[in-house]
Design a protein around this nucleic acid. Sequence first.
DNA 1: AATGAATGAGCGTTCATTCAT
DNA 2: TATGAATGAACGCTCATTCAT
Lengths: 219, 219, 219, 219
Amino acid sequence: MSNRGTALTTLPRPGHYARGAETVDQILDAAMDVLIDEGAGAFTLRRIATRCGIQVGKLTHHFARKELLIQHMLNSLLDYYEELLDETVRQPGLDAQVQLELMIGLVIDDIATRRTTHVFTELWALSNHNPFVADRVAAFYAHAHGLLAAQVAALNPALSADQAEIVARYISATMEGTTIFAGHGKPWAHQMPQLKAIAVRTLVDLARTIRPDEIAPLA
Amino acid sequence: MSNRGTALTTLPRPGHYARGAETVDQILDAAMDVLIDEGAGAFTLRRIATRCGIQVGKLTHHFARKELLIQHMLNSLLDYYEELLDETVRQPGLDAQVQLELMIGLVIDDIATRRTTHVFTELWALSNHNPFVADRVAAFYAHAHGLLAAQVAALNPALSADQAEIVARYISATMEGTTIFAGHGKPWAHQMPQLKAIAVRTLVDLARTIRPDEIAPLA
Amino acid sequence: MSNRGTALTTLPRPGHYARGAETVDQILDAAMDVLIDEGAGAFTLRRIATRCGIQVGKLTHHFARKELLIQHMLNSLLDYYEELLDETVRQPGLDAQVQLELMIGLVIDDIATRRTTHVFTELWALSNHNPFVADRVAAFYAHAHGLLAAQVAALNPALSADQAEIVARYISATMEGTTIFAGHGKPWAHQMPQLKAIAVRTLVDLARTIRPDEIAPLA
Amino acid sequence: MSNRGTALTTLPRPGHYARGAETVDQILDAAMDVLIDEGAGAFTLRRIATRCGIQVGKLTHHFARKELLIQHMLNSLLDYYEELLDETVRQPGLDAQVQLELMIGLVIDDIATRRTTHVFTELWALSNHNPFVADRVAAFYAHAHGLLAAQVAALNPALSADQAEIVARYISATMEGTTIFAGHGKPWAHQMPQLKAIAVRTLVDLARTIRPDEIAPLA
DNA sequence: AATGAATGAGCGTTCATTCAT
DNA sequence: TATGAATGAACGCTCATTCAT
């Protein structure tokens, strides 16, 4: 399910030696911080270099193009989120309903963090015009929706694989949508607990009870 | 319900004379086009000026600060969307359920357009760091959620006003969330009809049947 | 002695009607304030217009070129200073020594004001590259030195007219020079009383006792 | 006596490599030339860059802020003038009167040069609104007046240190004041020899003969 | 007469990238 | 390899001036 090993993540990693690797990690961390703290509009090599106390020249030595830096940063970021989801699913001995409730709760809690609220809203916007970002984000959601679809399929065997995936996508849409209104710093952040309660109850119910014929375009 | 006449929309409008007003409209249109076609990263005075065949100097004559241009553009844009929603609600003789189904369908159809997919994803990102954008977008959603909450309250009299509003917010989150996966140009745009079908059925059901005690944080 | 009526001051004055004349005076006052408060680097039509609450268009209606505004402002300013000196000299019944002491004291007191300190330092700089400013300032000093030379000549009949004028120029140089160190806001402004005391005593002495042969280049 | 090593002159100097250092010197020279030849109003990065045949980008690479360029240029300039004065004083075997005559003559000769006339009139004006320029120019005059005061004290042991300094300031005021009337390009530049003759004679006399009680504010 | 609209050059500054040591 | 130097386009904005009503 993971996209590790695909073209998207097999970028030649800069910094083969220990010292270089450290610097590269510092740069990637600083880049993430700039994106989160100041937004895509302030995502410049200068700002990133300043944040880790190095010169732009050193930065461009490790990442010859800005785009390469974006790609490594994005892989590092989304690998982390994928790992987070994988860990949740790896917990043994949970039945599918509890597992799904757990995932929905975890995702919504994460959405409420400053990091996730900021970084994903930026990525959705960047996806409009940057093909790499679009592809990598799509791969991330494909992975996440695969994990959700597995739980949906387990709860509702009447659904085909495609149908379970669509239900998973619907569940994910609801969760991601809360970012906009109740994410970190958003005007109704204080209502996130209620939205989470409705989501957990409603979406698990939906997964259990939806009939294949209901997943069809309206006449 | 509209925010017309509030502080947010009473910016002194440039272009008092006929000639100037035309130019101002051209500029605002061009600015929207740049934001939609090229994204916030390309939203520069020069690109906007080029698009309407004028010089940067002329542009800054009408909008002394870039921020003012953003504000007028945003007001113009969101006024339009608010008007769209208001018209839907103004239709007489429809019962609340049909009305709500209609609204959900209309919003999701609109989300699937290139314009709406692009512009809202950009606005969500800009909201992270631009207070004016954040406030104006929040005012727009407050308006939209008010309209939705009215239908929810009509369908489900057991809910308090606050509870109806939270349900409305949940409905809106689901709809907006589809932008990310099935908006224009997004990888699962072809699944939008299915997502729409699930949304219409599920969300109207939710509005009708949710009990007040279910809208509470999980223990 | 006055240069009134010469080419320098016979600029066609804008604003023939009462209302226009008022506006013109407001503009000239605002221009002076900008020059004094913000310096030549901030002496722009926009800043001046802002200060009197009008638009740049209105300002350029009254003064088609910035240079014209400078010229009128400068005439108005230096006419005022010339008038001030003339009044001092017009006092009847004073002998030449008292008259000279009075003038030196008055000039140095005036130099210590914010207005005079700022405006003259700006004019000295502008004179380097703006011929009109250079000429008008030269005319002002020619007038002032003429008044001083008359007192010197009265005190020291042995001097030729040219020699008296040179002594007057020397006296004036000392006075103007105090601007730099002890003018308003300058680091040794608190020593101006001592400098003034030395100037009054020394310069009057010089005027009385200098011999014609001492006013000659060193061998 | 020099301010070398003080905070004012320990700006981190750009251009660590030989190539960069050359460029920095070229830029500083060009900047001085622009200030002298065209005045503070024309002191722009573009004009400076044009003068040394480089691009504006290269200029801002070495001096990130225009203000930094001004500061380095000013330090370089006034260090030079301080060095000039120091050399004059360092001449051995001269008695105080000759030394003072020499200094006055040298300063007035220097004032008559195009460079000095232009640059100091600009600096006096800039001092009104630019704190760095004001402080650096004040430091220069403090240094210069210290050298003069030493000669005055030697000639006139009855004066206290403070009184000698005030006399030095008075001497300096007279000298600087000649800039305005008889500096390079000024209307009475041809009278500079006479003004110099009067200054040398009168000011040395003053230094020798002034009594402490004469250096006091007028009653 | 009076004033907003329009203009284009120029401002200081930032940008991603390339060059040279 | 590592890093300052160099580059030139682009950035938002201000400027004095001209145009049109």
